[in-house]
Design a protein around this nucleic acid. Structure first.
Length: 518
RNA sequence: GGCGGUGUAGCUCAGUCGGUUAGAGCGGCGGCUUCAUAAGCCGUAGGUCGGCAGUUCGAGUCUGCCCACCGCUACCA
């Protein structure tokens, strides 16, 4: 086992149902986790739910239930959906988990003892929706612009994490570690946030119990609970056994967070400062992606244009949906989702190209080679070209995945499919089989061996992206358990491991073409 | 107002250190083919590279200004 990979999604606030944004982040991390596992790295994939705070307490009050009961139900909805979609997470953490509570309290006490926390009085206008105080300039017409609800005047004494003391260090760290936050555009934004005139101050990390009881109690003042972000971010440590779990050091040294751009500030500023105060190395990397717009508009409750991943799964198959999400968004930028674009992509890439290549290859293997992987003859220049293309593709997919260029990786895979389709066209085994000229069988055998072997490579390369599809192809190639022993990228780059004589089966179309009524 | 981003073929986008005829996919059109999911292959489609000016032997690719959209941020109200 070489290398390690620890990847996280945000923990999702449990007052909403999973939509395309949550799903995208999780698809990204799932794909990477699967790849790194296939690469033989020690891999841990963490996702979960964020359950404390006023919104949950409010809902509980309205329903006459306990906050815990509300959180249980919402969290269950998330975790069940994630399981149904087949995500390969290693733990679904909840901020109400006992070990998390303990870790948060340990850390609070630790940095309190280190003098990193102040007690201050603060007065201001507060939005329950945002769970934060507003300054005059933040509000629009006396209301919170995001939640369109009146602000409440509050005067509170609270505990503050002396975050600003760490800014100088953080600026230096970001400047000396170019890959700490990527893509670059977000790195620049963070540096902007940290400029002296940005107004970013110390971080309030508590709420008095008189206002809110639903949270983790401060160990040094039982009249207070911990503010949500401080609580939530620490899940990334709890999830892998901080402080002395057996894998903690290894995994933390290989930690990568994946977030949407809306929560850049807590992850790029609060969190590194917290880690610095705790005395831990910063996470290895923060990966920030853009938003999916739907039908050219922002996703919003009022528009009702949320995309439910379960509906997409039932309608198109989740592998196809995953493929679209990863293929049509350049990581970091915003993209547009529409069912029309989804169908176009599925038909072009999956039905017409990949799926059809599987069909024609295995059909001919059945008709012209008795259904078994044929014994190839001496490879010629054409065969060598296909083998070279496969090896090149394996290396490129590896590189692109490691730099979060999923769309590029899938382009490369699609390019390999094109290469094999062109190869078949050039070899035209169906012609040879019909004419039955001298030596036709050897020619056809070599051709179909090459094509079958290319399918084997394609299956491996596609496995992290489409975890349901890859095993289906491998099963038809007669090697259903291949993934269990696969090491990427080498096993995809090494030509010729498909054994002649292996029985194949044609099967139904993997991606039936979707006909749209017009 | 400041900072940053984006603006390239009908659509989605590539275009590294400036260099000969500006590229890909999808769609459209023409042809070939029939093993395959009416799939595949080949060939095409002639876009003032947002606008103007400048630097240069030469700019999509650098500079300035302007326009449009987006993000962050500031201030005024």
């Amino acid at each position: 086992m070489t290398g390690a990979f620890y990847a996280t999604t945000p923990i999702f606030y449990v007052n909403a149902e999973p939509h395309i944004g949550h799903t995208y982040t999780t698809v990204v991390v799932d794909t990477l986790a699967r790849y790194h596992r296939l690469a033989g790295e020690k891999t841990f994939f963490l996702t979960g739910s964020d359950e404390h705070g006023e919104k949950i307490a409010e809902v509980a009050l309205e329903l006459g239930e306990t906050p815990q009961a509300v959180a249980d139900r919402y969290s269950e909805a998330f975790s069940r959906t994630w399981q149904t979609l087949g995500f390969s997470f290693d733990r679904f953490i909840r901020t109400t988990d006992p070990d998390h509570k303990q870790v948060v309290q340990n850390i609070l006490q630790k940095i309190y003892d280190a003098g990193e926390i102040d007690f201050r009085e603060y007065e201001g206008l507060y939005c329950i929706g945002c769970e934060r105080f507003f300054t005059e300039r933040d509000m629009v017409g006396g209301k919170c612009p995001d939640h369109d609800r009146p602000l409440e005047s509050r005067k509170e004494s609270n505990y503050f994490f002396k975050m600003t003391h760490h800014f100088e260090w953080l600026i230096d760290y970001i400047n000396s570690h170019p890959d700490f936050i990527r893509p670059d555009r977000y790195r620049n934004e963070v540096l902007g946030m940290l400029r002296e005139d940005s107004g970013l101050g110390d971080l309030s990390i508590s709420r008095p119990k008189s206002r809110l009881e639903w949270g983790i109690e401060l160990p040094f003042d039982t009249d207070y609970i911990c503010y949500v972000w401080f609580d939530a971010l620490i899940n990334y440590l709890t999830g892998i056994g901080y402080p002395d779990g057996p894998d903690f050091a290894t995994l933390w040294g290989a930690s990568q967070h994946f977030i949407g751009k809306d929560i850049l500030k807590p992850h790029a500023v609060f969190w590194p400062c917290m880690l610095h105060a705790i005395g831990l190395e910063p996470y290895q990397r923060l990966n920030v992606h853009g938003f999916w717009n739907v039908d050219d508009r922002k996703v919003s409750k009022s528009l009702g244009n949320k995309i439910d991943p379960l509906v997409m799964r039932d309608k198109y198959g989740f592998d196809s949906f995953r493929y679209f999400l990863l293929r049509d968004m350049a990581f970091g930028t915003d993209s547009d989702f529409s069912e029309e674009a989804l169908v176009t992509r599925i038909n072009a890439d999956l039905a017409n190209n990949l799926g059809n290549l599987v069909s024609r290859t295995l059909n001919m293997t059945g008709r012209f080679c008795g259904g078994n992987v044929p014994e190839p003859g001496q490879p010629g220049a054409q065969e060598q070209a296909v083998a070279d293309a496969a090896a090149t593709a394996a290396g490129q997919v590896d590189a692109h995945l490691r730099s979060c260029e999923f769309h590029r990786a899938l382009e490369v895979i699609q390019g390999l499919v094109d290469t094999v389709n062109r190869y078949l066209e050039a070899r035209a085994p169906w012609k040879l089989a019909k004419q039955k000229a001298a030596g036709w069988q050897a020619h056809v055998n070599t051709t179909l061996y090459t094509s079958c072997e290319a399918l084997r490579v394609l299956s491996l390369l596609v496995a992290p992206f489409m975890p349901e599809t890859a095993p289906k192809i491998l099963e038809r190639l007669g090697i259903p358990d291949a993934l269990a022993t696969t090491r990427l990228p080498d096993d995809a780059a090494t030509w010729g491991s498909l054994a002649p004589g292996t029985p194949t089966s044609k099967g139904a179309p993997l991606f039936p073409r979707i006909e749209v009524e017009s």
